[in-house]
Design a protein around this nucleic acid. Structure first.
Lengths: 243, 243
DNA sequence: TTTTTACAAATGTCTGACAATTAATTTTTC
DNA sequence: GAAAAATTAATTGTCAGACATTTGTAAAAA
């Protein structure tokens, strides 16, 4: 392998990119061992700290893992769905908070995407997934629950709904949409009355899924979206009044 | 700020996590300057290379940017939609290729999510977006086009469809679903006849969107999904026969 | 044969230095 | 006095070399 490095970027970034390309193009395959750090130093004609900075960049993206010891080194990592979920959620959350994305926009995206799961979920939902949804519904109807816990349970309910579609790629794609909205939801205060309504709609969704009734599920989900937006508008009104 | 570091993980990973938490919890805000590397060395009681490895991890996630010079340093970066797209596509592509996700699963996810955009796209599509779609359709009907270019244009068409929903969060969430399937699509050979069919369906979609007809768009998208899956099945049959 | 020890290879970390870049400051020049 | 040029200081980027730590392997001892 021959490498040509440009002077424009930092060396560590270029080295990381060269290795990343190797992984994405399939020249480096899962569990393959990269050359040792000293070998990489020679190949790229740089010092060890520079090579290490490059490797740390890749480690941050879960593209490689390192092992110490005699037969250690850096290995191409199989990107697990679990790892990908985490990255997805981190990125989505920051994207929303740093770009001042409105609650309406985030909420619209979330419910639109969630609705895409409903048809599949109605076909494929397992008893376990239904049980998970009912468990969250039960939690949500506990009286002493804090707003934060209520939101967390809400997210868990919707995660279960998404998972019920039985398509891991969709679960991954939607992880961000569903989870990243939690910080925004946390700004809403849920009165007992509002919670009651949400729990009622959640119950209807679970019932419709149990009956494998996609149309009803979709309709109720639409109501839930409307209700959630209404809550947000109320908060906005309160804010503008007090200001 | 007081930091407690555990001995279990690498120091650079722990330091990166501590700073990442600060960003995600809002203690460090966009464009804020982090302490200089030497200051961080003192705060965390580690050497400069270790601090630098931590910073490179964060740079790999676009969470910080660094600037050399007198008033330089590391700054909290505003995660742009552009950056987030890139990360999303990288992660999705690797996730699919490394976990041997079947074409059926990826395709199902893609079309289901895309269908979620249709209602909004029918309302909001702009003339520019329609023009972009028609331009890709025109490219796809060129006779000399390679399979790779055809696939790339197909992806561009679907990106335009997603963008037509006018919701940047959805565009971001779907970037992975739409783009990551390209390597899988590249395994399919498109005969002239098959291309004709695809171009025909794309045209119907563009027409329906122009007419703001969500129902028709959705129906045609369903046909396109079915047609794409049929192509994949054909390839699978050929493979098993020749093997 | 089993256990222990020693060794070797690799990553993790540290120290100290120098290079390159950039903003601010000072000096020079007109 | 104002503008241009040179200097300085701060900061990141890179390098060299060393030692610590971990871990697999091989040799030695029981």
């Amino acid at each position: 392998m021959k490498y040509e490095l440009d002077q424009a970027q930092e060396l560590s970034a270029q080295i990381a990119q060269a290795i990343r390309d190797g992984i994405m193009e399939g020249r480096l395959i899962v569990d393959q061992r990269l050359p040792s750090e000293s070998d990489l130093c020679e190949q790229f004609q740089v010092s060890r700290p520079t090579v290490r900075e490059a490797l740390k960049r890749l480690a941050a993206q879960n593209l490689i893992r390192t092992q110490r010891g005699a037969s250690g080194g850096a290995f191409v990592n199989r990107l697990s769905f679990e790892d990908a979920y985490g990255q997805q959620i981190t990125t989505s959350t920051l994207l929303l908070s740093m770009n001042a994305v409105s609650f309406e926009t985030a909420c619209e995206a979330r419910f639109a995407l969630e609705r895409a799961c409903v048809a599949l979920a109605a076909q494929r939902r397992t008893p376990d997934q239904l049980a998970a949804m009912r468990a969250e519904i039960h939690r949500q109807s506990q009286p002493g629950l804090s707003d934060e816990s209520f939101c967390a349970s809400d997210v868990a309910f919707h995660r279960a709904l998404v998972d019920a579609a039985g398509n891991p790629v969709m679960s991954y794609q939607l992880a961000g949409a569903v989870e990243a909205i939690e910080p925004l939801m946390n700004m809403i205060t849920f009165t007992a009355r509002k919670r009651e309504k949400i729990v009622e709609l959640h119950t209807l969704i679970a019932d419709a899924l149990e009956a494998r009734d996609a149309a009803t599920t979709e309709a109720v989900l639409g109501q839930l979206a409307e209700h959630t937006l209404e809550l947000a508008r109320e908060v906005a009104r309160m804010r503008s009044k007090s200001a």
